[in-house]
């Protein structure tokens, strides 16, 4: 059982030495948006807008529930949004409006991108 002490002693990313699910030698080819997300991370680091360590802490700051629910690059993209809000580079409204604008470029409403069931 996980105790309150476990939560107090470790942040979500700090898994070294913890009990863990069984190991499996999983490989995963990146989807196009995932590769773009990785490239964006490198460019943000290069321009000193978001460093690699800020990104890691940004992911950690999402909290264990969100981290466990999202895939690797879903965490990155979410952390970028939060960090860019914190730095005053973007606002949540601007991002929401831009996402709606992009979504509207696909007129077919039969599939809702936001309503996609998660595995």
């Amino acid at each position: 059982m996980i105790t309150i002490e476990d939560f107090m002693h470790r942040l979500p990313n700090d898994v070294g030495g913890q009990a863990s699910p069984a190991f499996a030698r999983v490989e995963h080819a990146l989807a196009p948006w995932e590769k773009r997300c990785h490239a964006l991370a490198d460019v943000l680091d290069y321009h000193k807008l978001i460093s690699t360590e800020e990104k890691r802490r940004g992911v950690e700051g999402l909290g264990a529930d969100v981290i466990n629910r999202l895939s690797y690059y879903e965490r990155w993209a979410t952390a970028f949004a939060v960090l860019l809000f914190e730095k005053g580079i973007l606002t949540p409204t601007e991002l929401a409006e831009k996402m709606a604008e992009i979504e509207a470029r696909w007129p077919d409403e039969r599939v809702s991108s936001t309503g996609e069931p998660r595995p």
Partner: peptide
């Protein structure tokens, strides 16, 4: 595109 495709493109 899925939700995160759109988030990535928007950023």
């Amino acid at each position: 595109p899925g939700y995160f495709d759109i988030l990535q493109a928007a950023l």
